[in-house]
Design a protein around this nucleic acid. Structure first.
Length: 423
DNA sequence: TCTGGGGTCCTAGGACCC
DNA sequence: TCTGGGGTCCTAGGACCC
């Protein structure tokens, strides 16, 4: 029997989250910005209609923002994460066969439903999510994940489908595929779409019917699987429980460029702190630590990037220990005389904290340091993150590297001090 | 002047070994 | 002048995703 997937995708998710708590934004152009209020990363339909592209730097669209009174928000990940959980919880009420694919998308397994019930069930799901969370969603249904993605896209576009489209055994499947530009197919990015267009393949239908050898030669096994998926042969099963993370990265662009090693040491200490916190939340320890720093990547003159890899003698999630190693690495790769714009740390070779390989030369009291980390995490959870932090992060406020969010909405759902006022 | 962050998978090539 | 072949492991870079 063929599997059947539904892809539930929140419409303009970050914008929709802002709208839930500020209904006046309905029907108006709204955008949400990346860190440091740098780029537009979410746009309402009205903002898209104004020609605001995904990822465009804000300074390039200031005139559009002004002329059309676009509402601008800094990103508020605490809020979006919380709203995401509510949406996913609602979906779980409908089926336990769910794969949470990203902050705003889930695949559901609908194989058990007969074909004439699926659209109706999709409508029920859509209605429930909107009613219980305030977030509008679209649902695409098909035999493979790739086709479900396409169905979802058509569902969003076409008035007739009204947000839910079942493409399984549909006489309109070819028409739907024809509507989808090849660059909008899941798995086709800039480089592949250029190649495909050079070969006269412009939409999903032409890609489905393309020559296998041509695709295989340029896109390898990835391309072959993609063709299978478009032809209705499922290659990507539903992943009910996500596999454990392979790495954790924390990196930030600085608000202002910095030159001195001292400031970089502070920034890196801060990134290690958040990373180690994430590590402990996952109950993992890292075997490898990588540190990198770079100048502005858009300035080709005087560009510098460097990275170092540190194998830790004993896998750990201890903040102060990791800060020490990271500082060692940073000193190694720092070069004087550059204007640095970004730095970061990566934890790799993660394993569960229960299976740490101890080292016979290890001189650290790990039971003691584990207890300190627990106390630290507990206080920061209860009193707000970074209530307690390491001196290495720096005590002065107003740091050049610190990320800014000048247009942030309140943290309606996650902070007691900022509950929505009802008037 | 101003340009996000965090992931995964695949592949090619080098190092090393027998 | 001739100077193997094959396997594994690791890494860097490319491509893609949200």
């Amino acid at each position: 029997m063929h599997p059947v997937f539904a892809l539930v995708d929140c419409n303009n998710f970050y914008v929709s989250c802002e709208r839930v708590f500020n209904p006046k934004l309905a029907g108006k152009p709204v955008i949400v910005l990346s860190n440091n209020d740098g780029c537009a990363i979410a746009r309402s339909d009205e903002a898209k209609a104004l020609g605001i592209k995904m990822g465009v730097p804000v300074f390039q669209i200031l005139n559009i923002i002004k002329a059309h009174k676009v509402h601008v928000y800094s990103s508020n990940y605490a809020l979006y994460g919380d709203m995401s959980q509510r949406v996913m919880q609602t979906l779980t009420q409908f089926t336990p066969d769910i794969e949470i694919y990203s902050i705003d998308e889930s695949f559901l397994d609908l194989s058990g439903f007969s074909s004439h019930n699926r659209t109706e069930y999709g409508r029920k799901i859509k209605y429930a999510v909107e009613k219980w969370t305030g977030i509008p969603v679209s649902i695409g249904i098909a035999e493979t994940k790739t086709l479900a993605k396409i169905a979802n896209r058509v569902a969003k576009k076409s008035k007739k489908s009204n947000g839910v489209l079942d493409l399984t055994a549909s006489p309109f499947q070819d028409k739907a595929l024809e509507l989808i530009d090849v660059e909008d197919v899941w798995g086709i990015g800039r480089s592949y779409s250029r190649f495909l267009k050079e070969n006269g393949i412009n939409n999903a239908l032409q890609l489905r019917d393309a020559n296998d050898q041509l695709i295989k030669k340029r896109m390898g096994i990835v391309g072959t699987r993609l063709l299978h998926e478009l032809r209705g042969l499922s290659c990507f099963p539903l992943e009910r429980c996500p596999p454990p993370k392979k790495g954790i990265t924390v990196s930030r662009s600085f608000k202002q460029a910095i030159e001195t090693l001292d400031e970089l040491l502070e920034a890196v200490a801060a990134y290690v702190s958040t990373g180690a916190e994430k590590l402990r939340k996952e109950h993992s320890v890292a075997g490898v630590l990588m540190v990198f720093l770079m100048t502005n990547r858009f300035n080709k003159e005087r560009y510098y990037y460097n990275m170092t890899t540190i194998r830790l003698p004993v896998s750990t999630s201890d903040t102060s220990e990791l800060i020490q190693y990271a500082h060692g690495g940073l000193i190694e790769i720092y070069k004087k005389g550059y204007l640095y714009k970004k730095a970061g740390v990566m934890f790799r070779d993660l394993v569960s904290e229960t299976q740490v390989q101890t080292n016979f030369l290890d001189s650290i009291d790990r039971i003691h340091s584990n207890r300190i980390m627990q106390v630290l995490d507990n206080i920061n959870v209860k009193m707000g993150s970074s209530t307690l932090k390491y001196a290495a992060v720096g005590l002065r406020g107003n740091k050049k590297w610190q990320t800014v969010f000048d247009h942030r909405s309140q943290s309606y759902t996650t902070n007691w001090n900022q509950l929505l006022e009802v008037s």
